[in-house]
Design a protein around this nucleic acid. Structure first.
Lengths: 252, 252
DNA sequence: CGGTAACAGTTTACGGCGTAAGGAGTAAAT
DNA sequence: ATTTACTCCTTACGCCGTAAACTGTTACCG
């Protein structure tokens, strides 16, 4: 009579995340595990984006029906949560031997590389609380760096939040810049540029500062958007590292 | 015979954004304009989130069918783009009379308030290029501040990107914190906390730094998440302002 | 050993989505 | 008066996530 599904919702998901699923006593053995499910889903997301990760597509990838996935993941949303945590295992530990400035930079670079490898991560809301152990480990390693830098405890949440946001934002910009290089997209961009010139002929007068930046970025030749995105990332991290340095100096 | 729809896609959308739509010569007059459409859509998004903004819902709001909207907006995606730009008109101009530090802070606060008023903005990918005049104006006003601060031109993209990202990230955190106060959500969080304790009983040993932060944030009483989010925002902006200050000082 | 409970995986179906296609009515141009 | 360009409607299609009910498999229990 007891509600056996109940609000098992948070519990079951967290158990999956933290590897605490009790293998059932009866019934047929699982032909696959939830690991295979999320690996297949990650593969699809890497190839075709998060929106291509439908239950039917993932099931098909595994030679199974869409509905069979519900024995593993409970809903598409938690499947995405599991995917999200899963790939965070790829972020390596940052050795704190180097200067804390370099360690922070290295952490940012590694996280950005993760986002570039798995752009669909940026489509998963970052507002959720940290759910899984892999993501938590990434956060913890940053906090360790900040601790060894002897940044005051009260400044660490702000620094963490800022670094996360900046890496995410820069990664977004970089992903967009890279996709704009594709031939089809380049064509679209050209059409867009012309359309913008027609729709807003007074753009340069209305937005002189923006125009100056754009002109400056076009000067380098090559692939301006990609270079601009990379420089924005490096520069933004540098700004934050300097800002953090002042808090450290004040305290120490 | 000529393709009359063609790839009018970028053109038409930009024309709508920049207010360059030629009123048609023939046929019945529009009972409404695209302004009303996006206003209705914004209303729905404010009340129930972006996912509630379906063509059928917006049409219904206007006493019209879903399909009739396609005479105004071409697709749901561009409708969202129009919504996005539209609300950016609410961000006021920041007077550059005060110190540039205060001006930057003021700009961040205003943008964050916009995000708190319209949380669905955070569900719109920020990777897109700037499309509309209102969003462009917000960007331009930040660039003006950076210019009066005499930050070197080459540092401005990074500073802009960092400030945008930080405001967005902090706003996400703040929105999440505010929604966690709702009674239903608080209940879910409690259940989640207990489930986490069961799933990861060794949490404190595995993640000592994270645990220390959490303990520190719980100390203040009241609504720790909201306060933590607000402090993270203020602190993150402060870090960036300090970082920018160093570039200005080096140059000046 | 047989019966039954717990489980995996299937088929079918539902309501919702964005939007393509085509038709009815309306207002300006010819 | 006719044509043309337009708005708005109805209908329909192919997707989506997932509820419900069913079939078949495995392990425990008497």
């Amino acid at each position: 009579m007891a509600v056996q599904t109940g609000q098992g919702d948070p519990g079951r998901t967290l158990a999956l995340l933290w590897g605490k699923v009790a293998t059932p006593k009866r019934g047929p053995r699982h032909a696959i595990g939830s690991d295979e499910v999320i690996a297949a889903a990650v593969g699809i997301a890497d190839a075709d984006g998060l929106e291509a990760v439908t239950m039917r597509a993932v099931g098909n990838e595994l030679g199974r029906t869409a509905m069979s996935l519900y024995t593993y993941v409970l809903s598409r949303d938690v499947m995405v949560d599991l995917m999200y945590d899963s790939v965070h295992a790829e972020v390596g530990e940052v050795k704190s031997g180097a200067s804390w400035q370099k360690a922070i930079t290295r952490w940012c670079v590694q996280l950005r590389e993760l986002y570039l490898r798995h752009p669909w991560l940026l489509d998963v809301s970052s507002a959720r609380p940290v759910l899984g152990p892999r993501e938590q480990e990434v956060l913890e390693s940053l906090l360790r760096i900040l601790a060894t830098a002897s940044l005051p405890l009260k400044d660490r949440p702000a620094a963490t939040s800022a670094l996360f946001s900046v890496v995410r934002g820069a990664a977004r910009q970089a992903v967009e810049a890279r996709s704009a290089v594709t031939e089809a997209d380049a064509e679209w961009w050209a059409a867009r540029g012309q359309a913008l010139a027609e729709a807003a002929p007074d753009f340069a007068e209305r937005f002189p500062e923006s125009t100056a930046i754009a002109a400056q970025q076009r000067k380098g030749g090559g692939q301006p958007w990609i270079r601009a995105a990379d420089q924005a990332f490096t520069g933004a991290v540098g700004l934050l590292v300097d800002g953090i340095g002042q808090r450290v100096a004040v305290k120490g």
